[in-house]
Simulated scan of single mutants.
Amino acid sequence: MRSLTEQDIRGSFVDCSKGGGQASVRTPRSRGAGLERAGLPGLAGGRPDRSYLVAASEGRPVGVAMRFQPARRGFLHRSMCSLCLTTHPRGGVSLMTACRAGAAGREGNSVGAYLCTDLACSLYLRGKKVPETGLRFEEALTLEEQIARTLNNLHAFLDKV
């Protein structure tokens, strides 16, 4: 996918109105042109209760605005991201909900998934970032197979939105 402009990013959101939600999206100035990292998406939110995800789907960018409540669980509690299958302690994984696109979203329907709170799935997969514990499970899959699995999980989530 080509580098995205701020206008491309704002226009990609399928679950926001042009006047309301798209205008309030805070795009990261330092990463706006480099969203694709090893073929995986990423665009973290600018507010503590919101994250934004932009990914290539059928050759065009698709954006989803998600809300989440930061987890406040015990020290021993661990959760797994449903995209990259990375486990995190405490608040490293959050249930993120996105309004569905179109009429379903206007009626208040939403979809949720447990995702890395920082949306750094591609960095965890490639070992560029480690979870707070410093551990990631060893897998028999190659990096390319892990990326393909993560993209399949991502596209399944986007299809639900």
Results as ranks from 00 to 15, higher is better:
residue 2 R to E: 03
residue 3 S to I: 07
residue 3 S to Q: 10
residue 4 L to R: 02
residue 5 T to E: 04
residue 6 E to W: 01
residue 7 Q to P: 00
residue 10 R to I: 01
residue 12 S to D: 02
residue 12 S to T: 04
residue 12 S to K: 05
residue 13 F to D: 07
residue 15 D to Q: 00
residue 16 C to M: 11
residue 16 C to L: 11
residue 18 K to W: 07
residue 18 K to I: 03
residue 19 G to L: 10
residue 20 G to I: 06
residue 20 G to Q: 06
residue 21 G to H: 02
residue 22 Q to C: 05
residue 23 A to N: 13
residue 23 A to Q: 08
residue 23 A to V: 07
residue 24 S to C: 07
residue 26 R to M: 09
residue 27 T to K: 02
residue 27 T to M: 09
residue 29 R to G: 13
residue 31 R to M: 12
residue 32 G to I: 12
residue 33 A to W: 12
residue 33 A to S: 15
residue 35 L to I: 11
residue 35 L to E: 11
residue 36 E to Y: 06
residue 36 E to S: 14
residue 37 R to D: 07
residue 39 G to Y: 09
residue 39 G to R: 08
residue 40 L to N: 10
residue 40 L to C: 07
residue 42 G to M: 00
residue 42 G to K: 01
residue 43 L to V: 05
residue 44 A to S: 05
residue 47 R to T: 14
residue 50 R to T: 12
residue 51 S to A: 14
residue 53 L to V: 08
residue 53 L to K: 12
residue 56 A to I: 02
residue 58 E to F: 15
residue 58 E to D: 15
residue 59 G to Q: 15
residue 59 G to M: 15
residue 60 R to C: 07
residue 60 R to Q: 11
residue 61 P to L: 05
residue 63 G to C: 05
residue 64 V to P: 04
residue 65 A to N: 06
residue 65 A to M: 14
residue 66 M to L: 15
residue 67 R to M: 07
residue 69 Q to G: 04
residue 69 Q to R: 14
residue 69 Q to I: 10
residue 71 A to Y: 03
